[in-house]
């Protein structure tokens, strides 16, 4: 199996995740899409850990750290979401426009 197959798989998943981030209006789904994108990145790490030019175990270590950070991100993101929900009573992305200039 060439490494390219794994990379393309990861790219497909990443793009689907990105599309979800861009278009989904439910904030929880956006968070889920971000998880998907991070997982796609993890696939790349692991693939290079086996097939890379300097293949070694560090890729997997990286991936482990990445998963840990993902977990933290999910926890904090959800906490923010809940705080936001309490304040605004909704989790629809297009209802949040306080960034408007």
């Amino acid at each position: 199996m060439p490494v390219t197959s794994y990379l393309v798989l990861a790219a497909i998943l990443f793009c689907i995740g990105l599309y979800g981030v861009l278009t989904k209006r439910n904030a929880v789904i956006v968070l889920l899409s971000i998880e998907l994108m991070l997982s796609a990145a993890n696939i790349n790490f692991v693939a290079f850990s086996k097939y890379g030019l300097y293949a070694n175990v560090t890729g997997q270590v990286f991936s482990l750290f990445s998963i840990a950070v993902t977990a933290a991100e999910a926890a904090v993101g959800l906490a923010i979401l809940i705080a936001l929900y309490r304040r605004r009573g909704t989790v629809e992305m297009d209802q949040f426009h306080s960034l408007k200039g």
Binding site: L18, V21, L22, T23, M93, D94, F96, H97, S98, L99, K100, G101
Partner: peptide, 14 residues
């Protein structure tokens, strides 16, 4: 573009 929608901003960055 400055509509306050985070998703639009992400799209523009993309």
């Amino acid at each position: 573009l400055q509509n306050g929608q985070a998703q639009s901003y992400v799209l523009v960055s993309l």
